[in-house]
Amino acid sequence: MTGALTTTGTPGAAPPVRRSATTVIGTSNLRKRYGAVHAVDGIDLDVRAGDVYGFLGANGSGKTTTVRMLLGLVLATEGEIELLGEPMPRAGRRVLPRVGALIENPAHYGHLSGRVNLTLLDAAGPGGDRRTRADRVSAVLEQVGLGAVGRRPVKAYSLGMRQRLGLAGALLRRPELLVLDEPTNGLDPQGIHEIRDLLLELNRTGTTVFLSSHLLAEVEQLCTRVGVLDRGRLVLQDELATLTAPTGATLVQTPRPDLVHRVLGGRVLRVDGERVVVHGADPAEVNAALVGAGVPVTGLELERPSLEEVVLAAASSSADRVDGAAGRGAGR
């Protein structure tokens, strides 16, 4: 696990952002202090072109502060940020038009229609060609499934429709990088499925996606790389496939765990009801040994840690907890 070092970093000089040619988001020793609270405590993010990067962490672990620092909303106390190869927030005017963002909840002007909202947002900054604006607005409304919403004011939209409109705003300029904070908030299961397909489709056509979430199942289905934030520190950053790689053990389902024990003896690592974990990364071999000895086997698979197990092992308890002797408080 090459990228899984906990970055403690010394206060003071931030080393330049270590980046490969494909780094899309790179931070170096990024810190944010609010008074005595270290909301973000020296993190080195490395998001590469083509990634669907899952940025995980409990509530209050510093996800939102980090996202806001990447976009130039919150100014870092210390450290460097590079976005699409340019320094932030200095180069924001050049970089941010190439980035689409959904920051916490979507927000719109309630008395205006979705179309007018998107038009105004596009007109409010550089990089949105005025001549193509109407067409681009129509196209993204279609893309997020709001093509026929008409002139209804946004205050009459449902939560899911607002979420879709927020996503439409992020997609308006065909961004190279999407920064999304909980993009499936408020959507029903079909909506979640739709948005997931949309994000995967965008990723296939070259968009890098940075997805901040605390929904592990969602990240597991979508992401290729994962970073885990715990109390302001990046405790884990690696390929999802590496993190959930087989552990070298085989999982045996059997109504007779006692027989497995008799046949395989010391190879049994754990017994959990009808599930027995056996040393050995070759299920066929394990199967042959058990069936040959007359042990009934109803299921067999390589043991892999779930993302949840990986995250729980790396992170401490939920930052919502405010225990008596807790050292460091929850960030914002």
Binding site: G72, P106, A107, G110, L121, G125
Partner: peptide
């Protein structure tokens, strides 16, 4: 208060 400020600044409006 409406939350639109963060979207304007991330647009970026400057």
């Amino acid at each position: 208060q409406g939350g639109t400020l963060r979207y304007l600044l991330a647009r970026p409006a400057g």
